[in-house]
């Protein structure tokens, strides 16, 4: 496949147990997933496909991930 081809959505990836340290960045790198940025405590924002993240989680149950969802302002007629 040519360079520059990119597939995916934004996900938040983080340790399932927030008290434990997991090198999420390194795990993602192992699957070719680039981290957009780090939010601290091994919470990262990454772009990937859900399938790949499921595979990653299957092999590394210590991590969790979720789609980067949207939250709206709550004023009327705004």
């Amino acid at each position: 496949m040519p360079d520059g081809t990119f597939v995916g959505r934004r996900f938040l990836v983080y340790p399932r147990d927030q008290q434990k340290r997991v090198n999420v960045r390194r795990l993602l790198a192992g699957y070719g997933i680039k981290v957009l940025y780090d939010l601290g405590d091994d919470i990262v924002v990454a772009v990937a496909t859900e399938d790949v993240l499921r595979r990653l989680k299957r092999n590394n149950p210590a991590i969790s991930f979720e789609a980067d969802r949207q939250f709206e302002l709550l004023a009327e007629h705004a």
Partner: peptide, 15 residues
């Protein structure tokens, strides 16, 4: 998608 390069950095699509 299995064949597609997972190379990132061309710009993320936000949710």
């Amino acid at each position: 998608f299995s064949g597609l390069d997972m190379w990132a950095g061309t710009g993320a699509i936000t949710a």
